[in-house]
Write a protein that binds this DNA or RNA. Structure first.
Length: 201
DNA sequence: CCGAGGGCTTGTT
DNA sequence: GAACAAGCCCTCG
């Protein structure tokens, strides 16, 4: 983005969604095509280069198929998780460190209707004290909704931050069936922690 | 029980 | 190496 190469071999597409307009960035490279980044409403770059607009007619068949499939997933509620880390719709895994890859992998296993804390996610990925680093990663998660960073909350049960806004975070959790013991606090029966047995370091 | 404040920790830039 | 951040934990009041 800052180095000016962000739009090389990439194109953007807007998609209306029940909570606003999403921005999808597709990578077109023949070797590695797929979704490069998904922006929640209000999160993307302000200026979108017109010449990089996604044109289904001229796009490669493979990318067209991926765009249609991803679009359908986004229309479902809740949006299905990615069970496997390197799902073929997504691309650009080389931008992640081993730490980040491990955390995202664990994140993808948190089911709808449940939440985990930043600290637990860190421990689960075998980096016990890296809660804050996990927060940093969640903030730059390129595939929100699919990699469900909205299911990561603070250890004390409060929501924690969210790129798309905490209101959206709460709505997403509510529609997934997460329960609140008080207005701002997640109920303990919605926590996924207990269902995972962590190897004690 | 809750909230505010301070110190600590980690991975990334 | 320093600064930063979508956190955590303990201590008060």
């Amino acid at each position: 983005m800052k180095d000016g190469t962000y739009w090389n071999e990439r194109c953007w597409q807007q998609k209306s969604w029940r909570y606003g307009k999403l921005l999808l960035v597709w990578q077109q490279k023949a070797a590695e095509s797929g979704l490069w980044q998904l922006f929640l409403p209000g999160c993307g770059p302000r200026e979108l280069p017109a010449e990089n607009r996604f044109r289904p007619e001229t796009a490669a068949d493979e990318l067209q198929r991926k765009a249609i499939a991803v679009g359908k997933l986004l229309d479902r509620k809740p949006i299905p998780n990615q069970p496997a880390r390197r799902h073929h719709f997504f691309c650009g895994w080389q931008r992640f460190s081993p730490f980040e890859t491990a955390v995202l992998d664990c994140l993808s296993r948190v089911p709808a209707g449940k939440v985990v804390s930043y600290g637990f996610l860190a421990s689960w990925a075998e980096h016990p004290r890296a809660a804050r680093a996990v927060g940093r990663l969640m903030a730059k998660n390129p595939f929100p909704l699919f990699y469900p960073c909205h299911r990561v909350v603070k250890a004390n049960g409060r929501l924690g931050n969210f790129g798309g806004g905490t209101e959206l975070k709460q709505k997403l959790l509510e529609e997934e069936g997460v329960t609140f013991r008080k207005p701002q606090y997640i109920a303990s029966n919605s926590r996924f922690e207990a269902e995972i047995n962590l190897p004690r370091p």
